[in-house]
Design a protein around this nucleic acid. Structure first.
Length: 577
RNA sequence: GCCCCCAUAGCUCAAUGGAUAGAGCACUAGUCUUCGGAACUAGGAAUGGCGGUUCGAAUCCGUCUGGGGGCACCA
């Protein structure tokens, strides 16, 4: 909310008075109180040191700060506010400088040059992408963008689920009931049918389970027929996935399937045995005991010699550490895999695979069906992502037809797609990632209130004002020039909006700290609400010249932040809609 | 049985240990000679129960209740 520079300056001034180190004093803006002021909870930190109440500490602090030579040029008034809160009124010159500093990106690029890996989306081959995949895909994309905006070098990995017993099952099912032409025609739909059928028949014929395991083992051992089937399934699946990724505007630096790590698996198992972390059971399966970490044991090799999920993730950590040398790996994967990651991280740490790398499971709540129950692929009970996007698109098209008849048919199609996808993405990104989401069509497709389209609409309106102001050429962004002297002419409403604009970098920072894109979404929404309310009552183009210059700059800055912020969330903006 | 996540308004969700717990939907009443009404203004309504830590708790700790997920040869 305050520029880093000003925060630092004030903290230093306060610290000097109390012989504290600057980091022991906290200076933050707590509430919007009016024209050009900000509040601080400096007193609170001091209070806990002195053993007095915050109110007493604040009183003393105010007396002393009044005479501070360092603060004199910054602050025009200091006052006691709530229980232990001190309000500072800043001089206009300071506010102006603060605005400029806040909007200076370089200050906020705290991840500059750091390399990190974000693993997201990671769908399973041969299964349709459904509503459950959208969370990992969209949250991962947004987080990657956030870190990148803060200066990090982000490697975006799609860790495809293209290995494991499930493919044994699929191969078995295909060999029994498969039809080449049908798969060619509708690859994923047909593969899903086979998979579902396999599980249905499995209920009556339990020996099918073994059959699936055998087919996977053959695949893993390089059986020609199984390999070529698997390759074919994979190619067909990826083709369908890419259509959806293109629609969602999701990109990856690398698409590396689990199968990629297969040649490394033996090495990992051998290494863990050598380090006496893993042990061989009588049935030849190999397990890592994790009592020390209070976790259940983790199996890394099956009794038939086949590999497991955990084995592959361990190999992946080893590989990534060696080839990318990241400072962190973020796994954007659902809540239900918590145990798996706790086990894998624990083993990786013990074996030293992740030395110098922060491993973090960015978990998120499930999307539950409208009945509040889990949506399971095996039972064929899912909502395909394509269906969600199509529905959203149709609804948006209906609305644009009503609202903006002037657009050409082509423009309307474009608007419908951008708005539809935006609505779906925002619905997910605006919520805390940890809570389970109960699926709801109405909310998912909402275009009113706290929704993606509301933000897109706000941006389009701001751009419309700027176009009409004629301060910009067709291709360049608006650049409204202001000076500190102009600040004396602005109203309280204007000032409040400035304060909101100044908070943008901080919202990004917090979103990164908490790995919560919803914090950025929330900020953008608050900004949009405030500017909507603002131009409803404060004329921009018809204002007096000295006021107009500030209002145009406000509109310009807000528009730029909305565009940039939405882009970071992976949501496109439109000049007209 | 053990472990993890969650519980806030009728519904869906917010909230750095701080000031009067915010929104949207729905409902009610308003704002159009408008820089685009996908908007704006106003209204009622909430921290699951009981303890604890703290000057201060929706937030941290304990416990109970309720919902979801998981617990070695699926991923």
């Amino acid at each position: 909310m305050l520029s880093l520079k000003l925060q630092k300056e004030l903290a230093q001034a306060a610290a000097k008075h109390y012989s504290l180190k600057p980091h022991e004093v906290e200076v933050t803006l707590a509430r919007d109180l009016g024209h050009g002021d900000f509040t601080s909870n400096v007193a609170l930190r001091v209070a806990s040191r002195w053993g007095v109440t915050p109110r007493e500490a604040a009183d003393t602090l105010i007396e002393e700060l009044k005479d501070s030579s360092v603060l004199k040029h910054l602050v025009t008034k200091i006052e006691m506010a709530g229980p232990g809160f001190i309000n500072f009124w800043l001089a206009p010159e300071v506010i102006y400088k603060n605005i400029k500093d806040s909007l200076d990106w370089k200050d906020w690029q705290i991840w500059k040059g750091e390399k990190m890996i974000v693993e997201y989306s990671s769908p399973n081959i041969a299964k349709p992408m459904h509503i459950g995949h959208i969370r990992s895909t969209i949250i991962g994309q947004a987080l990657s963008n956030i870190y990148e905006a803060l200066g990090a070098k982000v490697i975006r990995l799609n860790h495809l689920g293209d290995w494991g017993t499930q493919f044994g099952k699929l191969i078995a099912a295909y060999k029994m009931w498969g039809n080449k032409a049908a798969v060619k025609k509708q690859p994923i739909a047909e593969m899903l049918k086979l998979y579902v059928k396999f599980h249905e028949v499995l209920k009556e014929q339990p020996d099918l389970e073994k059959m699936g395991q055998e087919e996977f083992l053959k695949l893993e051992q390089g059986d020609r027929k199984n390999r070529s089937l698997w390759n074919w399934f994979k190619t067909e699946s990826l083709r369908e996935f890419n259509v959806l990724y293109r629609r969602l505007k999701v990109k990856f630096s690398q698409v590396i399937g689990e199968s990629f790590y297969e040649p490394l698996l033996e090495g990992v198992v051998f290494d863990l045995l050598r380090r006496k972390l893993a042990f061989k059971n009588e049935d030849n399966s190999i397990v890592v005991y994790l009592e020390a970490a209070s976790l259940p044991p983790c199996l890394i090799k099956k009794s038939d010699g086949g590999s497991l999920y955990a084995t592959r993730d361990l190999a992946a950590i080893q590989y990534r550490a060696k080839h990318f040398k990241p400072v962190a790996i973020l796994y954007v994967v659902g809540n239900e895999q918590s145990l798996h990651f706790e086990q894998v991280f624990s083993i990786a740490t013990a074996a030293g695979y992740s030395k110098g790398i922060k491993l973090e499971h960015i978990k998120y709540g499930l999307i539950l069906g409208e009945d509040g129950q889990k949506l399971a692929t095996r039972e064929g009970k899912t909502i395909p992502l394509e269906e969600v996007l199509d529905k959203a698109n149709n609804l948006a098209l209906e609305i644009v037809n009503k609202k903006n008849a002037n657009l050409t048919a082509k423009q309307k199609m474009r608007v419908a797609e951008v708005v539809g996808v935006g609505a779906v993405k925002y619905n997910d990104l605006s919520q805390n990632r940890l809570t389970d989401i109960t699926f709801n069509w109405e909310r998912m497709l909402s275009v009113e209130g706290n929704s993606g389209p509301y933000l897109q609409y706000t941006y389009a309106r701001l751009r419309s004002i700027l176009r009409k102001s004629k301060i910009e050429s067709k291709f360049s962004r608006a650049k409204v020039k202001t000076t500190a002297a102009d600040l004396h002419n602005i109203s309280t409403e204007d000032m409040l909006l400035w304060r909101m604009i100044m908070r943008y970098p901080e919202s990004l920072l917090r979103a990164a700290q908490e790995n919560g894109p919803h914090l950025l979404a929330l900020y953008l929404y608050e900004l949009a609400v405030q500017i909507n309310s603002f131009y409803q009552n404060q004329p921009v183009l018809r204002a007096a010249p000295e006021v107009k210059v500030w209002r145009l700059r406000l509109v310009d800055e807000a528009a730029q932040i909305l565009k940039q912020g939405l882009e970071i969330l992976g949501i496109e903006t439109l000049e007209e809609m």
